[in-house]
Design a protein around this nucleic acid. Sequence first.
DNA 1: CTAAATGCAAACGATTTGCAGCCCC
DNA 2: GGGGCTGCAAATCGTTTGCATTTAG
Lengths: 164, 164
Amino acid sequence: MSGIQKRATQQLATVYKALQGDHSHPSAGEIYQRVRQTLPRLSLGTVYRNLQRLVEERKIRMLLLGERVARYDPVLAAHDHFICQQCGRVEDLLLEQGHQVNLQPLIERGFTVLTHSLAIHGLCQQCGQVQGRKNRTKRAQGSSMPKAGTAELRERRKSMGYEA
Amino acid sequence: MSGIQKRATQQLATVYKALQGDHSHPSAGEIYQRVRQTLPRLSLGTVYRNLQRLVEERKIRMLLLGERVARYDPVLAAHDHFICQQCGRVEDLLLEQGHQVNLQPLIERGFTVLTHSLAIHGLCQQCGQVQGRKNRTKRAQGSSMPKAGTAELRERRKSMGYEA
DNA sequence: CTAAATGCAAACGATTTGCAGCCCC
DNA sequence: GGGGCTGCAAATCGTTTGCATTTAG
């Protein structure tokens, strides 16, 4: 009748602790490198298994912010994220004043809303400045017009918007 | 001086056409299966390369909605998405009435905002009904308490919230 | 003691890339 | 006819999994 026994291992506790107070939204690999300094024999697979377990137990959250990698966040309170496309940094956003997502109409249409995530992509303060300097001297890259071709090819180019 | 020549190939046009008017948000693999019926010799790599190119040319959009796979969307106008955790279906949302994301404070703080995506996860109308029926008869899975242990282990269990 | 959790390495799925040949311009 | 694009296959990357062994309870 009773469910399976959950055990508190050294590895689990260390992974959990590594995330506490960390606002850098590390990936599994980054957490692995960090925890390895305390437990050199720890394996990456175990890090993944423990992260998964902590997520299931609602002790941490997994973030998928339009990147390939999953990031992990010890902050359980609702908040959004800004992802810098240049340096990859992820910053917490507390946009409570602006983005009240009105989910009522959705719910009334019969949807069950469990979670929602808002990811804002762009350039952070530092990267934005650098990028701005570059753009000031950047040139547009023109591409020459083709010589035409068979009716079929012309048609294809037209359908792609490459020809009028 | 002029940039590299862009060519309109049969493969590119077919991939593009396959997405037109499609609101199912297919993945690269799904597009591959579809286009294969017209061009049996087409390779998956080419599908990826052409999708990438179409995204760069702003002819389609790539969606990363908190899943592992990228989805592709021919709709360029701003809109959000609902992802059903049960059946995986992705539906377009036009929440214009509710979710004015106020990006002004961010911009004033020096961030450069390029894009933002709002993904709402839950159960669609159909899956929500089925799930609801199941939940009505579901039981909570209790897990028995352990027998205690050394001071160190007790401490570890306490830090994980498994013990008082 | 016994079953859950680990370490290790192999397997996985989505995506990318190197290269020889093909075909658009 | 030259270079961009293709098909093919091998490589990459993050993540998962199978299995023998260790360890928590």
